[in-house]
Structure formats: C-alpha cells, structure tokens
C-alpha cells in the first residue's frame, strides 16, 4: 500500500439520491480517503443535510463537488435539485469552494477510455481506485432500480472530473492507454 499525496485539494464529492446520498473524499486524483453511502430511509433532505454537515466537520474539505443541475442533461428531481442548492448554501459560508460538474463534462472525460455508459464509467473508476471494486454493482437490467452504491461511483466521477479540470490531469487515469492523449486533447480551466 502506498502513501497518498497530501499536497492536493481535499475534495468532498456528493451525489444525492432518492434515499440519501453517496460520497467520496479525495486528496488529489490518485488518493481516495473515504467513501460510502448514507441512507436517510426516505426522501428526507434535512437528515441528508445533517449527515453531509457531519462529513464537512470531519474532513474539512477545500472543495465540495456536486452535479451541475442547471445542465440540460441533468435529470434530477426537484427535491434533489433543492438539496444540492442547500448543500452549496451550507458549504459556501464555511469558506469551502463549491464546484458544479455536468454530466457532459464527465462524459467528455471518460468516453475516450471507452466508458460511455454509467456502469462502464463506474468500472473505470473502480479500476482507478481498486478499493472501490468490491462495491461495484452488477450491470443494471432494464427492470431493476439503480443500486444505491452507484452513487459512490457517480460522486467519484464528479471528483475526478473536478481534478481534471484543475491541474492534476496528468495523474488521472494513468493506467489507461489513452491517458496522455486525453490530457492534451482537453483544455484545462
């Protein structure tokens, strides 16, 4: 087991779901610090927010990364959109940067690695962070509801895309054969 880089931004990425949320904490694109799901039992935004505040207190992140629900490709319900807005309103006064990542940005980052579906993106994330591999749900059938654990992988995809659009892209997906080509093809902000 290798140590982890600590000079990078600590990021808490959150993916709210209908029954809670999934999250990851990263210190740089190669260093996964914590991850998990929090089931609030029902669509309880107050309970979800309380648990998110616990994570903010425990990890003191530099940035919180969320889905950009203003993106036309975002298909989030009103409650989740409101929760994301509330998370932003909670994080900002603490001096925590709030970043929004769109589904399009994730797709742009992962598609060159052959990941065009949600499950394939999750598989690439699991290859990048092998400790997540045991949590990777099986591919979803049309009649199945989404496994709650998928929100961990969505949150990880948000976080990795956030780093990619900052300055750590060279480390991202370094095990993928197209990584170096991708880095040169995507302008960084």
């Amino acid at each position: 087991m290798t140590g982890h880089r600590r000079e990078d931004h600590r990021v808490l990425a959150i993916d709210p779901t209908s029954r809670g949320f999934g999250f990851v904490v990263l210190e740089g694109p190669a260093s996964l610090i914590d991850w998990g799901t929090r089931d609030t039992g029902r669509a309880d935004s107050n309970e979800a927010l309380r648990r998110i505040v616990d994570l903010l207190d425990q990890y003191g992140p530099d940035a919180v990364v969320l889905e950009d629900t203003k993106d036309p490709n975002s298909r989030r319900c009103r409650r989740v959109r409101e929760l994301i807005g509330t998370i932003k309103a909670t994080a900002a006064p603490r001096g925590i940067e709030v970043a929004r990542i769109s589904r399009m940005q994730i797709r742009a980052l992962f598609s060159p690695a052959g990941a065009t579906t949600k499950h394939r993106i999750a598989s690439v994330v699991a290859e990048h962070f092998p400790e997540l591999d045991p949590h990777l749900p099986p591919p979803r059938k049309a009649w199945m509801s989404e496994d709650a654990r998928m929100s961990i992988f969505d949150a990880a995809a948000f976080a990795l895309t956030f780093y990619f659009h900052r300055d750590s892209a060279s480390e991202f997906l370094n095990t993928k054969e197209n990584a170096s080509q991708e880095t040169s093809n995507h302008p960084r902000h």
């Binding site: 000079e7 931004h9 600590r10 400790e131």
Partner: peptide, 18 residues
C-alpha cells in the same frame, strides 16, 4: 490545501477491506 487529517486510520482500514 486544508491541513492534513489528524489520522488516516479509516482510509487504511477501508483500503484493506477490514
């Protein structure tokens, strides 16, 4: 960046799957 976490025991434990 934010200061280092007090410890990384949880990270190491979870990486080990324990």
């Amino acid at each position: 960046m934010a200061s280092k976490l007090e410890n990384y025991l949880r990270t190491y434990r979870r990486r080990a799957g324990l």
